[in-house]
Design a binder for these strands. Sequence first.
DNA 1: CGGTGGCGTTCCACTCAGCGGTACGCTCTT
DNA 2: AAGAGCGTACCGCTGAGTGGAACGCCACCG
Lengths: 249, 249
Amino acid sequence: MEDSNTVLGKALAILRAFGPADSVLPLAELVRRTGLAKGTAHRVAGALVHHRLLDKTEHGYRLSGGLFELGLRAATERTLLELAMPFLQDLYERTHETVHLGVREGHEVVYLAKIGGHRQTRAPSRTGGRMPMHCTAIGKVLLAHAGEDEWAAVLTGPLERRTPRTVIAPGLLRRQLDTALETGVAYEHEESAPGLLCVAAPVLRPDGSTVVAAISVMGPVGRFRPESHETAVRAAATALGSTLARRRP
Amino acid sequence: MEDSNTVLGKALAILRAFGPADSVLPLAELVRRTGLAKGTAHRVAGALVHHRLLDKTEHGYRLSGGLFELGLRAATERTLLELAMPFLQDLYERTHETVHLGVREGHEVVYLAKIGGHRQTRAPSRTGGRMPMHCTAIGKVLLAHAGEDEWAAVLTGPLERRTPRTVIAPGLLRRQLDTALETGVAYEHEESAPGLLCVAAPVLRPDGSTVVAAISVMGPVGRFRPESHETAVRAAATALGSTLARRRP
DNA sequence: CGGTGGCGTTCCACTCAGCGGTACGCTCTT
DNA sequence: AAGAGCGTACCGCTGAGTGGAACGCCACCG
């Protein structure tokens, strides 16, 4: 990771130094994480503040609202999100469980939306966050439809064990992907976090060949029966799929 | 606007060249909008692609998913959004009308969330979008609680006329702000777009002095009675307010 | 057709923006 | 009192960045 020869590289190193959990980082911490010289970091951070990508607070720097605003201009994710929202809404209203919308980016899942009520299941997923593909229902669905190349890449790579139930055997995972392709849905049983169950269905292009995204419903072990929501999730996903087809020929 | 002496300035000029409506812009268009030299724009855009802030397509450049992801790391708006979602959800479920969450940024409103069903009222607002303060219910509420300085700044500035009903008389607007402070809600009657009505309530810090955000419900003239949703909106806003207080002491 | 204009891309010599080591002042802790 | 860690400020060197020029490629048109 030596992109830091250009100013832009340094700037992005600083911006990306903020993990999902960090809200405000002091200059010294930025220096530590980025490996930049103190003077340089100071100056670049100052420039970023000037451009409204960072806020300077008493205790350090913070990603600013300007960045949030800019991010929401990203065309593809935005229109997908806007079109999907009503369906996610419906799905939530019908199930009253946590609903996700996710897309594939690289070999991971990125969540575009996560909606749920007050007693929301405390899940590791967050809007804008990433998760591995092999241990989430959305990930499996996306992977299942991603084509042989992607299968190979993921199945041969190391499969991180998140919980005792995470599927890390390539053979078993492959079989799950096969059935996901047949049945049109994928399940997760406490594979990304203990106590969580999940069903997901793919949002497909009308030709049925390519996946655009996936929708899932998640709930806690005990009251939650993933199977009983299978049809609802599938319905939402296919409905979104044909709406997308209508708008984007 | 001559921030374009530094690389960072040029990069941001390019990113911000994308209006809310543009999805993909060819290099030539970027050159036109930013005023950069062709060679420079080419190189900087290339660098941005390399850093996953832009995507290069057949027809030009496009804001990339990486930017979306980065934007959702912005701490303040993100936690606000996450905490607010359940309440917006409830509100939507109760009213089945378009629900907004907005904050003040500069002298404008920025929408952090917009949720609504399929028959969604076609409103000019978009998630991540901006609107003037004087012609929206959310804007009026935010302005009303923003303090005398802000009042002065907005009331003396030019008030853009968006529709025949937009309030552009400073005196009338000031009176509306007064009553908004008294009653705790603000209304909009086709002031930002024809055919749209709106009620908004402020999300306050527990001391009641400062506004954090505002919530609104919007609907079309005819079936929609803003007054009948006043209590629901106010309830959602105060509930969110006390939740925020609990989490951020 | 050959011409013309807009486009994306590549090249290159100049130069100033950016660099990072050094130094200072501040606030805590020891 | 001394030290550690922080944010800030300064400054001379240098190569990253610059933008004008030139090229090849369509698509349109007289």
